[in-house]
């Protein structure tokens, strides 16, 4: 059983190709720029308790038009038993399964799930601890870094995602810092792992950032150029 917020039959922004995306309810951090804060609470009337089999039956309606599924949230790694069950089922339809995670749950403690899934799309929100804590209200940033290293080493890093807040924002960011550090993982370069630089947009945001305009083009271009100069497979 998992608390499912919604299932999108056709998503082109949650990993490579056409995928069905499953969004689970509940998150363990509260990012200032979260654009779907309604998925944060661990209990919500609009979310629905569903078994892995029930979710799988919905996914099946998208076959053969999808190459796989992406499980997102909220933070889907809060419901790992369900993830395992669901991914096991999707393998019967030869679908790939990606996990979209904020990296706060150590994958080293979920070996079976890690082996089962086809990859993890990992959010790296900050490199500096203070920046991370400000952005997310989480305390421990080391787990994200450990996950990054583990996933890169084991060739399970499907994507790195970095939300780029504008420099004018009241919350400090350290995008350059993130890029410099992830580029030090040679596996990320050699395996050509896509690094998505996601432009901040105020849609859905409910925090003090809600009136913050979207990140301007020239800032995005700056990050893109920096990432490319570090040999990262960066995309906007």
């Amino acid at each position: 059983m998992a608390l499912v917020r919604k299932i999108i039959a056709q998503s082109t922004v949650d990993g490579p190709g056409n995928r069905t995306a499953v969004f689970l309810q509940g998150c363990n951090i509260r990012c200032a720029y979260c654009h779907n804060p309604e998925t944060q609470s661990l209990h919500d009337d609009e979310a629905k308790e569903m078994t892995a089999r029930e979710v799988f039956e919905v996914i099946r309606k998208s076959v053969p038009f999808i190459r796989g599924i992406t499980i997102s949230g909220g933070e889907c790694m809060l419901q790992t038993d369900f993830l395992e069950q669901l991914i096991n089922l999707t393998k019967t339809e030869a679908l790939t399964a990606l996990i979209d995670s904020n990296g706060t749950i150590p994958f080293s403690q979920h070996r079976k799930l890690l082996d089962l899934c086809d990859g993890v799309m990992l959010d790296v929100k900050a490199w500096d601890k203070k920046v991370y804590q400000q952005l997310t209200q989480a305390t421990n940033d080391a787990i994200v870094k450990d996950n990054l290293e583990l996933l890169a080493k084991e060739n399970k890093l499907a994507e790195v995602r970095i939300v780029c807040l504008p420099k004018s924002s009241p919350i400090q960011t350290d995008i350059e810092n993130i890029l410099q550090h992830i580029a030090q993982h040679t596996e990320i370069i050699t395996s050509n792992v896509p690094v998505y630089l996601i432009r901040y947009r105020p849609y859905g945001v409910i925090t003090k950032l809600k009136d913050q305009p979207a990140t301007p083009d020239y800032e995005m271009q700056h990050y893109l150029q920096l990432a490319q100069s570090l040999y990262l497979n960066a995309r906007i």
Binding site: Q10, T12, G17, N18, R19, F65, I66
Partner: peptide, 15 residues
């Protein structure tokens, strides 16, 4: 937005 993800359109064609 299809222009950004032609692989997704191709998946639909394949299906």
């Amino acid at each position: 937005t299809g222009k950004k993800n032609p692989a997704a359109v191709l998946d639909i064609v394949k299906g």
